[in-house]
Design a binder for these strands. Structure first.
Ligand SMILES: [Mn+2]
Ligand SMILES: [Mn+2]
Ligand SMILES: [Zn+2]
Ligand SMILES: [Zn+2]
Lengths: 152, 152
DNA sequence: CTGCTTATTGAGAATCGTTGTTGAAAAGAA
DNA sequence: TTCTTTTCAACAACGATTCTCAATAAGCAG
């Protein structure tokens, strides 16, 4: 987990594995770096953001880039109970955080806890795994949905 | 989180919300209750198991039941990096556990940690959420895949 | 037990997020 | 530059999940 990527550190990390730095990849990383705290983007969200900014990157490239960056540990891939994945920068302590999700309305709250990352690192290390991301996901029912009479 | 459901405790919990106990729901819960430790089932896995057992339950019903039971907190819905969801019984301490997943080959290891559930409960409680499930998911690269020269 | 109301089922069609395929363009090496 | 390899955009294809709807059967009140 690197705190902030620059063009050249991104290039270095890509080249190390035989990949290339393209304008598209640089642009996409930039969007995530300038994202407000607590904001998560789906592939389609990102596509729309880029359209508005005039940087028309194809959906295919977006999907490929998101997956690539998630596998490199640059982005976190989140399942926020909406039928599609969301992504955000994978930042180290003290920005590292977790998600509390309402399974009914999908409202999501972020929270921090210093122990989690330690527990996760230790678990990965114990079996010789190289840690990419460590997320505590809490599925729950929010106060509003608890009050709602509607079942389901 | 209830340790073991019987026909009647399941019925009670369903009826409380205006739902009904059907033979299909009872059968499906039974499959999970008799599943070997560490085994997870996808919707299609479950469909096949039921076919072999002679209890032909339709895929539609399986999907509906899995979602229902996950929302009730009876089952856990897991994202094990294979493009589809997996399910297992949602059991309390000391059976409650977490998952360490290789993002390349999807190999999954289960591990336990007593603190996690406490941390999760506290986080949910703080915001008035009703806890259903709490899972620490670790994305990593397994030793074998680290050695493999193949990128991606 | 009987009948009524309404949740649930099964079969298949439909949806939609994601992945695969292709020829063209761009990056990196020499 | 020139050659080789990777990446791109566009669109087709895929597959997991959801939806639709007529038929069935829980649950409940009498
Ligand atoms: Mn977040
Ligand atoms: Mn498990
Ligand atoms: Zn809610
Ligand atoms: Zn692996």
């Amino acid at each position: 987990m690197i705190a902030t990527y620059t063009s050249s550190s991104l290039k270095a990390e890509l080249n190390e594995k035989g990949w290339r730095l393209t304008p598209q990849r640089e642009t996409i990383l930039n969007v995530f770096q300038n994202l407000p705290k607590g904001k998560h983007l789906s592939a389609e969200d990102l596509y729309n953001v880029l359209q508005e900014e005039g940087a028309g990157i194809s959906l295919s490239t977006i999907y490929r880039t998101l997956k690539l960056m998630a596998r490199m540990g640059i982005l976190r891939e989140l399942e926020l109970a909406e039928g599609h994945k969301h992504y955000e920068l994978n930042q180290p302590h003290p920005y590292h955080h977790h998600h509390l999700i309402c399974v009914r309305c999908s409202k999501t709250i972020e929270f921090k806890n210093d122990q989690i990352l330690k527990i996760g690192s230790k678990a990965a290390q114990k079996d010789g795994y190289y840690l990419l991301d460590c997320q505590l996901t809490i599925h729950a029912v929010c106060p509003t949905c608890q009050r709602s009479l509607m079942p389901t």
